[in-house]
Simulated scan of single mutants.
Amino acid sequence: MRLVSRTAQLAFTAAAVASLLGWAAAPAAADSIRKRQWHIAALDLSKAHKLSRGDGVIVAVIDSGVDAGHPDLAGAVLPGEDLVSDGQDGRSDVDGHGTQMAGIIAAHGHGDGGGTLGVAPNAKVLPIRLSINAFGTSGEAVKAVTFAQKHGAGVINMSFGSADDAPVQAAIRAALAADIVVVASSGNRGEPGGDFPGRYPEVLTVGATDPADRIASFSITGPQVDLTAPGVDIVTTGINSSGYYQGSGTSEATAVVSGAAALVRSRFPELSAAEVVHRLTATATDAGDPGRDDSYGYGRLNIVAALTANVPAAPASAHSETTPPSTAEALPQRFPKRTSPLVITGTAAAAVLILGGLVLTLMLRRRR
């Protein structure tokens, strides 16, 4: 079954969407958007940015493409790859999710403190566009990871979900062998598609927390969770008329951690990918049950500690494994794209699509 695209949904739900996006419909004061970014203070980014801003690091965003024309991302988006439309380079986005992730990672704002600020504002984004709100194949994801590996990515952001797929895992392991930090989301409860690649032991798997440092109600927990980060009511770059978006999901938390990985890679360029992951998890603020637990993983992301702490060498772990699994030919699997729900008031917004006389209730955004 093909998922209805956001564009099609909006055509039938304009009134509902307008009311949901009303907070950003009018031009905002120069600093009002940034004031809505509660995670900036929660992560103490002002202090972190005195130590590192992500210079010299490329973060591959495997997603819906990135709107390179957004003023908060101007000059930060490299030519990438479009696995959907021939002749394109990933620097356009009709869906919005990729632009949202890119803004969380590397937005630099504009003017005098205007617009949004990313976790690693001096990093570069390598956009790689996959099929969105449709069933593509795992082959797209394999090509995307391989492209990121061949084009200098130091970090790969994977804010999507799928079924278990050996070729995708093999591509991820090859990226790790090439010294790339691979960050994936744990997934949102109640959404279709599966919990991979977040369940692969090779990736740094991220769950979401709210402004009170609690696990977000939608965030999937379990032994695969390594780290948690802000993922509720995150304001970032968008492609709507105002150019900004507020959303909740493990997608957003994953992008935060990808930005943090870029900061660490920039400050400590001698560290391997496995050592970067170890530094992020070893310096996390313990939460929940003492030690690692299935809700917070090793704890809540602490970027300043990751940039300053004296961290002992990492023990051997799944994150340093580089032996690829069997690469025998396999039939491509249906590879649905997850989307983060649009959250303006703390609850997921719903839209109603009327087609052929049937009413199909869809979540406005079903992506993590």
Rank of each mutant, 00 (worst) to 15 (best):
L3F: 15
V4T: 05
V4Q: 10
V4F: 15
S5W: 04
T7D: 05
A11V: 06
F12N: 02
F12S: 12
T13G: 06
A15E: 13
L20F: 09
W23H: 11
A25N: 13
A26F: 10
A28R: 15
D31S: 14
R34H: 06
W38A: 05
A42R: 09
A42M: 08
A42G: 10
L43W: 02
H49Y: 01
H49P: 07
K50N: 03
L51T: 01
R53E: 14
D55N: 14
D55G: 11
G56I: 07
V59S: 07
V61D: 15
I62N: 06
I62T: 05
V66D: 15
L73V: 11
L73G: 13
A74E: 11
A74T: 13
A74F: 12
A76E: 12
L83D: 06
V84A: 11
D89Q: 12
G96A: 10
H97G: 06
G98V: 07
Q100I: 09
A102N: 07
I104P: 06
I105S: 01
H108I: 01
H108G: 10
G114T: 09
G114K: 11
G115D: 04
L117N: 07
V119K: 01
V119G: 06
A120C: 14
A123R: 07
I128S: 10
R129E: 02
L130T: 10
S131C: 05
E140I: 11
A141G: 14
V145R: 01
A148C: 08
A153P: 14
A153M: 04
G154Q: 14
N157R: 05
S159H: 09
S162C: 07
D164T: 02
D165W: 08
P167E: 14
V168C: 00
A171R: 04
A171V: 09
I172G: 04
A177E: 09
A178R: 10
R189T: 15
G190T: 02
E191K: 12
P192V: 14
D195M: 05
D195A: 08
F196G: 01
G198Q: 02
E202I: 00
L204C: 03
V206C: 00
A208N: 01
D210M: 06
P211W: 03
I215K: 06
A216Y: 10
A216W: 14
P223Y: 02
P230I: 01
G231V: 07
T237D: 15
Y244S: 00
Y244I: 08
Y245P: 10
Y245C: 10
Y245V: 07
Q246A: 13
T250E: 08
A253T: 00
T254Q: 03
S258E: 04
A262W: 00
L263Y: 04
V264N: 03
F268P: 08
P269S: 08
A273R: 12
V277E: 02
V277C: 04
T283K: 03
A284C: 04
R292D: 01
Y296R: 05
Y296K: 03
N302Q: 03
L307Q: 07
T308G: 08
N310R: 11
P312W: 02
P315L: 07
A318S: 15
A318V: 08
H319D: 05
S320T: 11
S326M: 05
T327R: 15
P332E: 10
P336L: 12
K337Q: 09
S340Y: 00
L342T: 12
V343R: 00
V343W: 04
A349E: 03
A351S: 11
A351F: 15
L355P: 01
G357K: 00
T361I: 14
R365H: 08
R368Y: 00
